[in-house]
Every structure is written in structure tokens, then in C-alpha cells.
Design a protein around this nucleic acid. Sequence first.
DNA 1: TCATAAATTGTGTTCGAACACAGTAATGCG
DNA 2: CGCATTACTGTGTTCGAACACAATTTATGA
Lengths: 345, 345
Amino acid sequence: MKKYTIKDIALLAGVSKGTVDRVIHNRGNVAKDVEEKVKQLLEEINYQPNLIARNLKNNKVFYIGVLIPDPKIDAYWAVCIDGINSALSEFSAFDVQINTFLFDPTDTDDFLACNDTMLKTAPDVILMVPLFYKEATSVLKHYESLNIPVGTFNNQIISSSANFIGQDLYQSGRIAAKLLHSISNKGDMAIVHIDEKYKNAVHMQEKEKGFKSYYDDMDLFEDSVLTCKIKYFETEDKLRDFLNNHPHIEGIFVTNSKAFHVARLLESENKTHIKLVGYDLLSDNVNYLNSGTIDFLIHQNPRQQAYLGLKYLIEYLVFDKQIPEKFLLPIDIINSENVTPFLRP
Amino acid sequence: MKKYTIKDIALLAGVSKGTVDRVIHNRGNVAKDVEEKVKQLLEEINYQPNLIARNLKNNKVFYIGVLIPDPKIDAYWAVCIDGINSALSEFSAFDVQINTFLFDPTDTDDFLACNDTMLKTAPDVILMVPLFYKEATSVLKHYESLNIPVGTFNNQIISSSANFIGQDLYQSGRIAAKLLHSISNKGDMAIVHIDEKYKNAVHMQEKEKGFKSYYDDMDLFEDSVLTCKIKYFETEDKLRDFLNNHPHIEGIFVTNSKAFHVARLLESENKTHIKLVGYDLLSDNVNYLNSGTIDFLIHQNPRQQAYLGLKYLIEYLVFDKQIPEKFLLPIDIINSENVTPFLRP
DNA sequence: TCATAAATTGTGTTCGAACACAGTAATGCG
DNA sequence: CGCATTACTGTGTTCGAACACAATTTATGA
């Protein structure tokens, strides 16, 4: 129960605290038999250093580089800033300095340029959204060679050793399927990919796979699952054609945060009987959720992703904790009745 | 940007660190003009004491009394222990000592007895589940007179000033209604209260109110909402009668964690077409969720409730943080596809 | 005026880990 | 043997806040 200090161990071993310290940090210059004895004692009483005292002495400032898409260009990322601030205030006792860089999520060159700018601030660790697979891969390799630990979220770059926070996208597609299946009439199901100009193809593919796997498992031969890919600028027309060509559609799954586009069309075309499931608590989506046109939203929790990613990095810096390789957040199902508490900062 | 220390302020004010310290802690014995000057300086540079250094000196051990129902008697409470351990390991750097007491959730006398035993350990703060309204009220009043801060969760004792962590039960009932409404065929809805011998009447009433309010809002005159109260020991017979007497029931809402009892009956009576929504991720419930007899579970997250309650108390002790009066957790909707990550410790 | 009390201010130590540096003992080598 | 070198060990200081206590200044009264 009692908390042992270095002094206690020194007393027990009959040596000075300096020697104990040398043993703990493997700093050498200790006689073999003494080292053995001290190590055994440390083991026996399961010595845990007082992290408070350690951090009082190590009064150096840690610099963290954060690289995320600009919320002014895509509102989805706005809540990440909140998550970062949460982690920051949680560790306000420590000297952690954050430099945030916002890149244009439609521009790979800007992504690379921001990485360069960030490197100039000599960060001890980096938290980033590796939005572009190819560019991110090379950037991450570079950081690895510089021995800068990196945390990533939202997009997983499997080739990298960087830590990753996100969700199981395949499972997320299955959840959408289960929800639509449980609330829809018999009929066709549509998966709608609305491309946002930038590469989240992997995201959408995984979700589609999961969605289809659920319907495969169900052996619902009478219903078919259709897929519709739409470029951002042609959403309305193409979607209208798609719905007219497939009059038996009873449910739509939008694989990203743009479900509100579909909702708008369903309302204007008087097809609100079609059930709609999408992603993310953007205010546009939440409005359609409350009006009933969107039935469920799946919450990808970017706020929590950013928070956790940063927390792991800070704990690595100040407590020498191991950074977990991967952490998959639980997937929240949101409807009009439980949405409110998820919106608060 | 720079972090100022007491020494810095002393230097700037042309006094000694002792004087600055006296000003900060209003310990008197400072000339008025000097006090003014130092206070102004502190204000100007927005002095924030280094919490690490403060806690190094304050090396006293904090004792926390925890009082929760015995998980051996009701499995619902088992995950609370995990939550407590999480909070504990998060603050392992500080000398926080926890004494946990488990009371019989069917026995008010045991609750009172455990409170007495706990008081003998002279706790600095207390975290408890105030399961019995009357007894808890008097106990909380006693702690207030002893100036022992108390955190409560699961049950709110409105008359008390103790902090409370929980969920909005009324809203939780509305969520159940929304879910059942979206997945059920037209027909009657049943609210089933399975009494567990001990008093959670307030819980169940609030949930019922919320449930009904949703159906009232919907103006669903054709469907009626029935209520069925069942004593624990007569569950099966009474429920069977109830279902036989009301053949048009299409959905059942069980207001506590005992939905598995209803699920078992639905299976044995071949009435699995009836949709079922209940509470809590007990393994019995999860099994029926996976088999499809239970459609949704609402997650009350007792683990998180315990974790947060304890976290607030510890932060109060070690960082002098204000304990928030009330915190309502978001309400998680669980189906068979997203349940897994919620089950991990 | 001077002793004494009261008011005010400064100094030094503590907490535990980390590390610089001084000190002691053992060994090597001419 | 004597001096240097290596091998090992102990001491002292630092981080920032907190507080005990010493020191100093000012006020009071005989």
C-alpha cells in the first residue's frame, strides 16, 4: 500500500539514492552485486516513480504539430478543434505547446506545403488527418525517418506505423444496413456515394462492403441493393434521375456527411417515405433528422478522435506511456430523440 | 506565453516569494499597498500556479469512500468497478485511496449499515448510488452537515446538493418510443415495468412519461399505449396473460435491465414478431439482441457514470476544481451491429 | 528614550526524481 | 612505491509551491 520513494529503496538496500537512480535508469557505474540487489528490491516492492516529481524537474516545453483539414472549407472538421482544446486543458498542468495547421481538403499540394511549414516548427510529435493516401504515405515515411512519433485519425494509412484512431468502417456500413432494414418497407436499397472531390474512396468502399454483407447475411433475395455514385456538382440532377429510374427504392444509405443533399431532394420530390441513413452531426443533417426526413445518423465522432489522438501523444511525452497502435471508437447511432447531448461542446 | 512562477512575480513586485504567497492565499500580514500591487501583477499576467509542484508538496493521502450495490446480487453494477478502476489508474500519480463498500440492493438496512461502516474510514469525499430515496436523503443530509462532498450517480436525489451523474430518463423513454415506432407495425404498444423488489419506481415512471409523451406528440390515436406492472417473481405468468389479453401488441418497452425475461417468453410463445426495446448491456440481454428477439437496447452506461463521478471528486481533491452540479450523459442506442465496442472494459 | 509588542517581510526547508559533481576505493603501470 | 586511471558511490542542487520560522521594520506605551 505504501508508496516507496527512491530514498526508501536506498535505505533498504543500504546504498545512496544516487546509486538507486543509476540502477533505475541503467546509467551504469554500479557494481554488479549492488545492481542485482537494488533491482530485486525494486521488483519486490513494485516501485513506481512519482510522476509528479519527475515532471516538476523535467520542465521542458513539448511542441506538438497538429495538421487537419480547414473547417472553413469543410465544416465536418470544426469539432476537431474542440477535441484538441479539451485534451489541451486536461493537460494544462504541463508545458505543452500546440501549433495547428489547416490544409485545404481539396488540394494535395496544400497538404504537402502545410507539412513542410509544420516541420519548420520542430515538433516533438505530430497529430494529423492523413487525408490523401499517396501523399500521406510519403509524408509519414519521412516523419518515421526523423523519429517523430505521429498520431493519425479519420483515415488509416495501413502501411504506416503511426498510431490510428477511428472507426470500423465495414461495421459502420453493417449498422446502416441493419437500421435501414429494420425501418424500411420491403423494396430496393440504395447506397449513395457523393464524392467530395477529394479522396475518401476507401472510406466509402468499406462502408459499402459492410452494408452489402449485412443484406447478404439476411438472404433477402427479393430486395436488391443498388449503388449510385455522384459527383458533388451534379448531385441534384443525377440523384433525381436515379430515383425515377428505380421507383422501388425504400431506403437510402449515404456513405458520408452529405445526406442533407439527398434529404433536400426527397422533400422537394415528395418522396419522404423513403428511409434515409447518413453520417455525422452537421447542422444541415441534424435539421433534417429533426424534421424526420433523415431517420438515423451515424456519428463518427471526429471530436473524440482528435481528442484521443492528442491525449495519447501527450501521455507519451509527459508520462512516457506507450502509444497504442490502433483504437477503434464505438459507433454511435443517432436519431432525433438522442441527438442533443451529442451536439454539446 | 511564458509561464510565470511565484519567484518571477516576487521579482517583478520587488518583494519576496513569501509575501507573494501570502497574497495569493489571503493569509494576511501584508501591507495594504504591497498587497494591491501584487494582486494587480497577478491579474495582469494571469498567474496560474503550477499544479504539479503544488501536488508534490501536498503529499497527503486522499481517502475516498465508494458505496455501490453489490454486483453479485445485481449484475448491472459490475461494470461500475471497471469505471472506478479507470479513474483510479488515470490518477495513479496522486495518493488516492479508495475504500469500496457493496450493499445489498434489496435491503435498505444494509444500505444504512454500509454507510456507517464507510464513515468509520473517515473519507474525504464519497461516491455513492443513492438507491433508496428516503434513506439516501437522510444519509446525504448527514454528510452535508459533516462537510463531506458527495457525488451520486444513477439515482438523482433532487433535495440534495450532491453532484449527480446520470441520464435524462424522460428523454430516454422518448428514445425508446421513437425506436419502437420506427420499427413496429401498427398496433398497440406496451410499457412493461418489472419490479426488482427495490425502489426504482422514479426511474420507471420518468421513462414511462417520456415514452407516452412521444406517442402523444405523434397523434397516433389508432394505437394505444398499455402499461403492465409485474412483480419480479411472477414475471412469466403475468406477462403471458398480459400478452394473451392484448393480442394486438406490436411493441414492448421494458423500463429496466430485465428485457431478457420478456425476450425469453416471446421466444417460447413464438411471438418474436413483437418488437422489443430494453435497457443495459447485460450478457443475457446482449444474447437476445444478437439472436434478434431484442431489437434495441438503451445503454445507461453505468461504467461511465461511476468513472465520471469519481473523476470529478478526485479533481476536486487534487486540483481544487469545482464539482459540477449535474451531468447528463448522452444516451447510446445499441443494436446487434454496434454492440461489440461497448462491451469492452 | 527605550523596551516591547505588533506588523510586516524575507529566508530556508520540504516534497521526489534527476542529474551534476565530488568523493572514495580499487586497480594499473612505470 | 607513487601517481594516474578507472570503477564505483555519496552528496548536493534543482524544479515550483507551501509553509514554518527568523528577521526586520514600525508602532505603542511607560
